[in-house]
């Protein structure tokens, strides 16, 4: 039934005004990401400009909003922070020995403290999948608690790496575990903690059924406590059409509060350009060529 329900969102028909609003909303939710060994400061600055201003040229009226955040490796946090200063775009950094998490806890926590000190607004951590799959749930939870503490004021996104957890049962259990662990020190503010599907380094990354299961965990936590946890599918969402299907799923599984970058993000790199292309099509009536949008 999970697969069936997830497939039903992709059959929804999203047209005209709804499509326009959806595209703008999706742009505003993107965590524009570059996570490669070959990243350079210049590439990060290009990414940041794209984040602040997804489309230059004024053909789209009103202008598209800025994206939610840029997401970079720890070494690029300062560069990114300077490049987006004053724009409202947040800087998110992966940490905790991303993407594997296969390092001693002390090192992973130091990682977190460093990026927060460098100015990261948001920390994307990975859970200890080895411990989770071995059934050492307390250990996983304890590590999440410590990372949360190390984050201080920075918001935390907890990557489950669902491609490695494989089964829906595991994904639901990991979602519940992550939410409970992060919430242990008193009440969370809405959006202070996100759960996130993937690092983008493992295939499959985000899928609709997996995201649906995580949204259901978020819904159940909300109904039980009134606290709104955020959701971030990451990896594999490349087209505007698929982004709109995700938004449809959020809207029908949770409610309109989650239709906001405060509570929902797309972890993506090429998605923004397709959103721009579709927005251009709505405003100009013709499709832009690939070279009409800038690389990022």
């Amino acid at each position: 039934m999970v697969d069936e329900r997830a497939a039903s969102f992709a059959k929804r028909s999203i047209k005209t005004t709804m499509k326009g609003a959806g595209l703008r909303l999706a742009v505003s939710m993107v965590d524009l990401t570059t996570l490669e060994g070959k990243d350079t400061p210049e590439k990060v600055r290009a990414l940041c400009r794209k984040a602040v201003c997804p489309h230059e040229g004024g053909q789209i009226e009103p202008a598209l909003p800025h994206v939610a955040a840029v997401c970079v490796y720890p070494s690029m946090v300062r560069t990114a922070k300077a490049a987006v200063a004053g724009s409202g775009v947040k800087v998110a950094s992966v940490a905790t020995a991303f993407p594997s998490g296969q390092y001693p806890l002390d090192g992973r926590l130091a990682d977190v403290r460093q990026v927060v000190a460098d100015g990261a607004d948001e920390v994307d951590m990975v859970i200890n999948r080895g411990a989770f799959l071995a059934g050492r749930y307390d250990e996983v939870a304890q590590e999440i608690r410590e990372v949360k503490k190390a984050c201080g004021p920075a918001h935390l996104k907890i990557i489950l790496e669902t491609g490695e957890l494989e089964t829906y049962d595991h994904i639901r259990r990991a979602s519940d575990l992550a939410i409970e662990a992060a919430a242990v020190d008193g009440d969370l503010a809405d959006g202070e903690v996100f759960i996130k599907t993937s690092t983008g380094k493992v295939s499959p990354a985000a899928t609709m059924p997996v995201t649906l299961i995580m949204l259901e965990a978020i819904r159940d936590h909300y109904l039980a406590t009134g606290v709104r946890i955020g959701m971030k599918p990451a990896g594999g969402i490349r087209t505007a059409k698929s982004a709109l299907h995700y938004l449809m799923m959020v809207s029908e599984t949770l409610d309109e509060h989650w239709l906001s970058p405060h509570l929902f993000r797309f972890g993506a790199s090429s998605l923004v350009n397709d959103l721009v292309r579709q927005a251009l099509k709505l405003s100009t009536g013709t499709y832009a060529a690939g070279y009409d949008t800038s690389v990022s």
């Binding site: 005209t16 709804m18 499509k19 201003c53 939610a68 409202g88 509060h257 906001s260 405060h262």
Partner: peptide, 13 residues
């Protein structure tokens, strides 16, 4: 300067 989109109901067309 660009603003973040307001959250709100997403109406079906």
């Amino acid at each position: 300067t660009r603003t973040t989109e307001q959250s709100g109901k997403w109406e079906y067309a």
